[in-house]
Nucleic acid binder design. Structure first.
Length: 278
DNA sequence: ATTAATGTTCAGAA
DNA sequence: TTTCTGAACATTAA
């Protein structure tokens, strides 16, 4: 579930509370749930971590990266329902990993909570982390220039919505924000990328930045049927500003004429206004 | 009972 | 080589 703004909110929430804190112990599933995918296996995972301390919490595309004093990094991929939490999980039954922190501080535990359990947590050396970034991820969506989008669009006839979701083109945009970005840009999600004109791509690039930064300022989107919340367990508020996502049949807030429709592209829902997105 | 859900990855086919 | 489809992972809520 978390996309770029939600993961950014997670790492910002966790950073001031864990940097400098030593790891006393790592516990797998303090509740009675199935362990999520870990690498390496839990024993080595915990051993390489014990006694080290956190030096930073940062975001890599839709992943949270917790750097350790050893030079290793914990790379957390929340996928659909994963959360990094310092307090109050949505329910106590899906805590998949617990880091017990030494020393003084407001919080003594850091959790990875994941209801569906599709998330993954890996411990990587710096060279492995660099390789991950280089092979699977394009530039961060917030760092993409209009020229970079122009080059990516020119190179393919794929639908622009599908291109926005391609993490090798630009990393961090997910299904929710792709629809919101295209609506703000006035671009149809079905438009072949290589048919977009330069000014329209420039408009899209600006919308990418605007939507993502506004969503970060709102601490992400917490949908009614979802579980996302900040590290301190506060709901995000960007859902109150959604214009099209899950708004099927509602009036378009931009043109006031059309109704929002839902279509399916690459097996994912897309929401848009056919009247003002061309 | 069926369907869809803010993600990623893989196999197989066009 | 590129692109698309379907399925898989697992759980829950409408």
């Amino acid at each position: 579930m978390p996309e770029l703004p939600e993961v950014e909110t997670m790492v910002r929430g966790v950073h001031p509370h864990i940097v400098g804190r030593k790891i006393r112990r790592v516990v797998q599933c303090p509740c009675e749930c199935r362990p999520i995918t870990l690498s390496p296996g839990f024993d080595e995972f915990a051993k390489r971590m014990r006694g080290t301390h956190f030096t930073a919490a940062r975001r890599l595309a839709k992943r949270a990266v917790l750097d350790l004093s050893t030079g290793d990094s914990i790379v957390i991929e929340p996928r659909m329902t994963g959360l990094l939490l310092l307090a109050d999980p949505p329910d106590p039954g899906h805590l998949r990993l617990e880091w017990q922190l030494e020393g003084s501080g407001e919080y003594s535990k850091l959790w990875f909570w994941d209801r569906r359990g599709l998330g993954t947590v890996r411990l990587l050396r710096s060279d492995e982390l660099a390789e991950l970034g280089a092979t699977k991820l394009g530039p961060d969506a917030l760092a993409m220039t209009a020229e970079a989008w122009q080059a990516a669009c020119r190179a393919t006839p794929r639908a622009i919505k599908v291109l926005l979701l391609d993490q090798r083109v630009a990393a961090g945009i997910g299904n929710l924000y792709a629809s919101e970005i295209l609506h703000r840009s006035g671009i149809s999600p079905l438009q072949p990328a290589n048919k977009l004109t330069r000014p329209r791509i420039a408009r899209m690039q600006a919308a990418v930045i605007e939507v993502l930064e506004e969503a970060i300022a709102c601490e992400g989107s917490t949908l009614g049927d979802a579980t996302y919340r900040t590290a301190l367990s506060i709901n995000g508020t960007y859902q109150n500003r959604h214009r099209v996502y899950k708004k099927t049949d509602e009036q378009c807030p931009t043109c006031g004429k059309g109704a929002i429709v839902r279509i399916v592209q690459a097996q994912r829902s897309t929401f848009y206004c056919p009247k003002c997105q061309k």
